[in-house]
Amino acid sequence: MTELMVQTEGLTKRYGRGDHSRLAVDGVSMTVRRGEVYGFLGPNGAGKTTTLRMMLGLVRPTAGSVSVLGRPAGRPDVTARVGALVEGPGFYPYLSGRDNLLVMARYRGLGEAAVADALERVDLASRGADRFKSYSLGMKQRLGVASALMGDPELIVLDEPTNGLDPAGMADMRALIVALARAGQTVLLSSHLLAEVQEICDRVGVIADGRLLRESTVADLRGHASLRLRAEPLDRALAVASRVAGDDAVRLEQDRLALDLPAAAAPELVRQLVADQVDVLELAVVERTLEEVFFEMTNHPIPETEEAVR
């Protein structure tokens, strides 16, 4: 049993030739481990879908390599163990949702029980007999996920699975992915919605303009929490804060102090402030959202991104 479900090395895709060529994916090296929910994060057009297509053998890399389940991507024995929904659900419009899954089940060599089970899991059992073309965007998306789930594949690749879903549908989809992860399935999830990834992913890879900017756990990416303090008088508060956190770890932000201290340091800080007759008006633990980190990363691309990846 391989522990690396997906491994890419310098994966590159260039569309077109000569002056008009476009580098869609540029030297992406990433790994997805067994049993994790991996968030593949990036703005639209960043190269997420092209990378996923190369992992599934739909698109041939220009350079670099990609192995899935320890074997070269796209081989029949690999694809059979991977379930995928890539760039929107592709189904026969004239067939019912159930018949569409039945066709795919036949390709996979699965029985009708797998179809019924998959429809149940995405809450489409009651609409299974309706034609695909009569489905709403959200239902089409759910059918795509159902197709990816059929036969309990070892790796499930979902490209923007919440596209077109309403807030309730999004919550259902998140719950479904979490349930899959609990059941031991590995999920590779791409998204441009950061909040979504933040809640359910173990690790994330951030891609922009075809380059993988960073790959790490969500917690590492967000960095440590910090404290925000509002207290009077300010000058005495600043003195105390500097004593507790160190001079370099305190910044003045308008009428507040920002301290690079973990949440666990809050009680001690308050004790010291009170002992020095400082009135504590407000103390908050502030965590950066993935969104803030993300914009920091994509708006000011770090020159040594290669280093950041390694």
Binding site: P76, G88, G90, F91, Y92, P93, Y107
Partner: peptide
Amino acid sequence: GWGTWKTVFTQGPSRAAT
């Protein structure tokens, strides 16, 4: 146009078999 070949090609059978 429907994207069904894309779906079919990720089911397992090779493109030749499909």
